[in-house]
Design a protein around this nucleic acid. Structure first.
Length: 950
DNA sequence: CACATGTGCAA
DNA sequence: TATTGCACATGTG
């Protein structure tokens, strides 16, 4: 294999660093010193992968230094608009240098030249010297350099690499010659490099032009063939086009020379590298590194299935050896211990490691399989369906796994009766109370199976929920979890059924062998994640929260979602008509006042009219992108002086109402049930709250008279039912009072006082009876502000108070409630020391930024330290209440159903004969879900619609 | 068609 | 320079 031409790898350092950093932006790696090591980790992972996979004999890592003097000379805005390099990247650079030096990796830097130009020049020189060069970079600009001997070696999102040779470039850019990539980039521009490009020309147009004219020059010489606006624009920007092309051209005459010897790989200084990794707390990388450089690793090197490397130049590796033997120890994130059973080689799909996935054949095969299945104490399963909506989706198959690396797939027939027959055979498994069921997002599977009249019984372990408790701020989809904790990249669903939109396939259209591979892999991975997470749950002392709250809630939510709520479409239709005519009138008035017609819904156009043309304000506030801000708090000050602004505000309110609620809700009524089924997300809000979508039923208007009308559209199931709404009164303030043991506030609650009036009376030092509306309102604002960690500035923004008055008010507030202030600083201190805060049920939120150096970020973390335990404890309490109520309704075989949760409120469809019983039961369960030193109070209302029920 | 931005609804 | 969310219309590529 090495008898082929010699190979040179040139690594574009910054491109890989940026890519690594942003790939982890949602789950940044923070070590115990609070340092963000994402960029280093991301870069090293990619880099070591290349070494491990390709074993290059000649290699260099190329950095920029001092930018490109040349390009800036040509175009002074070149890269000027780029955001400043994030801190996470800045701190990474010196470490990466140090690591590469310790590894004895050649580093190329040429002051005043970009890495692109250095790499370009070197590859062309190496080509003359008989080398095949691989440019390791994701940056598509490099495509212009590709030749018979020069390839791009691109890391692919989700792991693996793809190689671009001439055919790939020609196909990708739809050109005849790689050099035309320069014309393409020149026309289209590149926002990240600040190459302007031709205005109005994007990917599609650029490709068209190149097919038609061959080059930028060809285009500019033949503009008479263009039409309309495009002709004008291109002609007007000819110079810009030529300049853009120059900027996009990678220079090949950088004063560097390719001497073979300088690029030879040599033995790394293992001790030095290990030391740096230890300092950074990179455990997995340490083994990854040893592996990448070891002889053994070379022998057992596996092939990634995504390999697109040309056969002649890149050695194809031997079939993967048994990865379970333990010569790799790549398992686990840097904080996770590695274990023998969960060892997989880096960035591979599970396909490449030894595994045994079997398709269960019908007849005898099914019987044998089910017999075996029923003997297991604990099984992971995953349903495959025709779509994402569990109310309409049909079963395509179910994967099962109970042993790492092994699993089975039961494919389902399309025909309804046959499918039902098959699921009946599986019923004993799903309805067994003995067998524990493991899954990722089990709510979905439960809802799907529900349609087949199967109820999933027994203990549940949902890996998504488990991870949500382990770190609620991270993302919890299975692909990310597999990468983070198991270090492998599952087959993506897009690979199977294509991107959503144009011609997305259904799972049904996927060959059953591929279904098996994909589905069982997911079950296999989920099973392995469970092993991981169950340990971590214990370490974080979150087991009770998991078992007693989050897991039981899954079934409660599945029931609520399946139930849905009745919506009065006709009523909304008539509202829509009313809104329409009012909006039309306002529109006419606004156009008249503005002297022209424009799109009022466009903040850009509106700002231009109000502040650019009419100049209603001397110094208009701008948004971060430099547009005039037309936000409500800006405009409302001006409404009394300018009719047009009052009209705009009213228009906005009505338009919002119509588009977001009145017109949108009827479209969400499910065909099959004629009801609206929201989807509650249990793992989104970092504090432990639920969120609701498709549609969001947690933000239905209530504050304005007009908006409130929408609530009239939510009605009982039929004439035998009424809607009941039960609200916790001031639950968050009660929690903070109890947690801080602030007696004054606790007393007020115990005595059933109006808490805001009571606060006002104490803070402003007036008798309770003499508190003015304004005083109560200000006290209410502070009460809420305290929960969020408000500043004097923020408070003065929310009230009529000046900054000074706001500060006085806050000071008086803390004097009234000294324990409250103490509690707040205690929370902050706890977070500083432990890195997290927790709720009454031990739900944690990690706040690493609280020890960071950025004052703004740190301030936000400090507010979170106060807010998260309060908001989160309230969430804990209502979740407990929901579970208890759900159980009572089930056990008592009531017809009443729980329908909605809105953070501190529950909504029920109550069967009229059960009404009195329900009022008592619901109020009792909510008030007694969790007992604190402050009583909880729940207000219950009943009505013919949601508005009346309040 | 996908994504960013500005805006605004709820607790 | 107040917490947590979701979703709309516009604008851009």
């Amino acid at each position: 294999m090495s008898d082929q031409k010699k190979r040179l790898f040139l690594v574009d350092a910054y491109a890989l660093i940026f890519r690594g950093y942003y790939a982890l932006i949602k789950n940044p790696r923070i070590n115990s010193k609070g340092m963000d090591t994402s960029a280093i980790m991301g870069f090293m992972n990619s880099f070591l992968d290349v070494i491990k996979k390709e074993r290059p004999d000649h290699l260099a890592v190329c950095f920029d230094k001092g930018g490109s003097a040349n390009r800036v000379e040509m175009f002074e805005e070149y890269k000027a608009n780029r955001d400043e390099t994030p801190d996470g990247i800045k701190i990474a650079i010196p470490y990466i240098y140090k690591i590469l030096e310790a590894m004895h990796i050649p580093i190329m830097v040429k002051e005043g030249f970009e890495a692109d130009d250095v790499i370009g020049t070197l590859s062309k020189q190496a080509e003359k010297a008989g080398y095949t060069t691989f440019m390791v970079t994701p940056d598509k600009d490099f495509a212009q350099l590709v030749s018979e001997n020069i390839f791009m070696y691109r890391p692919v999102f989700g792991g693996g690499y793809e190689t671009w040779g001439i055919p790939e470039v020609l196909k990708k850019f739809e050109v005849e010659n790689p050099l035309q990539v320069i014309d393409y980039l020149g026309m289209m521009g590149d926002a990240s490099d600040n190459i302007p490009g031709l205005p109005g020309v994007g990917d599609k147009t650029a490709k068209k032009f190149i097919k038609q004219f061959g080059s930028m020059e060809g285009l500019l010489e033949n503009t008479e063939q263009l039409k309309g606006k495009m002709k004008e624009k291109v002609e007007a920007n000819a110079e810009l086009g030529l300049l853009s092309k120059k900027l996009a051209t990678i220079m090949l005459d950088v004063p560097v020379e390719f001497h073979e010897k300088d690029f030879e790989m040599s033995e790394p200084d293992v001790t030095a590298v290990t030391e740096i990794f230890e300092e950074l707390e990179f455990r997995r990388l340490t083994t990854n590194f040893t592996n990448a450089f070891s002889v053994e690793a070379m022998a057992s090197k596996g092939t990634n299935h995504e390999e697109t490397t040309p056969k002649k130049t890149i050695q194809k590796a031997a079939p993967t050896t048994n990865a379970g033997e333990g010569q790799f120890s790549l398992f686990g994130g840097d904080s996770q211990p590695s274990t023998a059973t969960e060892v997989f080689s880096s960035r591979k799909t599970i396909k490449d490691t030894e595994h045994f996935y079997q398709l269960v054949q019908s007849g005898m095969g099914t019987k044998l399989f089910i017999g075996n299945l029923m003997k297991q104490p604990s099984v992971c399963f995953d349903t495959e369906t025709t779509g994402l909506n569990p109310l309409t989706a049909e079963l395509v198959g179910i994967a099962f796994s109970w042993e790492a690396g092994k699993g089975f797939y039961v494919a389902f027939p399309e025909e309804k009766e046959a499918a039902q027959e098959l699921i009946e055979q599986l019923r004993p498994f799903f309805e067994s109370t003995e067998i524990e069921k493991i899954g990722q997002n089990l709510k979905y599977d439960i809802k799907v199976l529900r349609k087949y009249d199967i109820s999933v019984k027994g203990q549940l372990f949902d890996t998504m929920l488990a991870h949500y408790l382990i770190n609620p701020d991270m993302r919890h989809n299975m692909d990310v979890l597999a990468e983070t904790y198991l270090n492998y990249t599952p087959v993506s669903i897009t690979e199977l059924i294509g991107k959503k939109g144009k011609n997305q396939k259904s799972m049904r259209d996927v060959p059953v062998e591929e279904q098996t591979e994909y589905a069982v892999e997911d079950a296999d991975i989920t099973l392995q994640l469970k092993e991981h997470f169950s340990k971590e749950l214990i370490e974080a002392d979150n087991q009770k929260l998991f078992t007693d709250i989050e897991v039981p809630l899954v079934r409660v939510l599945a029931d609520m979602e399946a139930e849905g709520i009745n919506l009065d479409k006709d009523f909304l239709n008539s509202l829509s008509g009313d809104l329409d005519s009012d909006i039309l009138t306002l529109e006419k008035n606004i156009y008249e006042e503005a002297g022209e017609e424009f799109n009022i819904a466009s903040p850009k156009q509106l700002g231009e009219i109000l502040f650019g043309k009419m100049k209603l304000v001397e110094k208009p506030k701008k948004t971060k992108t430099g547009q005039y801000s037309t936000a409500e708090d800006v405009l409302s000050y001006l409404a009394k002086d300018h009719k047009i602004i009052a009209d705009v505000l009213e228009y906005r309110g009505l338009a919002k109402l119509k588009s977001t609620y009145v017109d949108a809700l009827p479209l969400q009524v499910e065909e099959a049930t004629q009801r609206v089924h929201t989807d509650y997300m249990q793992t989104v809000a970092a504090t432990g709250r639920l969120s609701s979508n498709n549609p969001n039923l947690q933000n239905i208007p209530i504050r304005t008279e007009r908006g409130r009308q929408v609530r009239k559209a939510f009605i009982p199931r039929d004439e035998n039912y009424v809607l009941l709404a039960a609200d916790y009164s001031q639950i968050e303030l009660r929690i903070i009072a109890a947690l801080s043991q602030e007696e004054t506030m606790m007393e007020a609650f115990k005595n059933g006082e109006d808490i805001h009036a009571s606060t006002a009376s104490k803070v402003f030092d007036v008798p309770l009876a003499e508190v003015t509306r304004e005083q109560r309102s200000n006290a209410k604002t502070v009460n809420f502000g305290i929960i969020y960690g408000v500043s004097a500035f923020g408070l003065s923004n929310q009230t009529d108070l000046s900054r000074g008055e706001a500060k006085e008010l806050i000071d008086a507030y803390y004097e009234t409630y000294p324990k409250l202030k103490h509690y707040m600083s205690e929370q902050v201190n706890f977070a500083r020391e432990h890195g997290y805060v927790e709720t009454i049920m031990g739900r944690r939120r990690y706040l690493n930024a609280i020890n960071g150096s950025n004052a703004i970020v740190r301030g936000a973390a400090e507010r979170n330290a106060v807010n998260a335990p309060i908001q989160g404890s309230a969430a804990d309490i209502i979740k407990i209440a929901m579970i208890n109520i759900h159980r009572k309704l089930e056990d008592g075989h009531y017809k009443t159903k729980m329908l909605l949760q809105v953070h501190d409120e529950l909504v029920f469809d109550v069967y009229k004969p059960e009404l009195e019983e329900m009022k008592t039961l619901i109020k009792y369960e909510m008030e007694n879900a969790y007992l604190m030193d402050v009583p909880l109070d729940v207000e219950v209302g009943v009505g013919q619609n949601w508005l009346e029920a309040h």
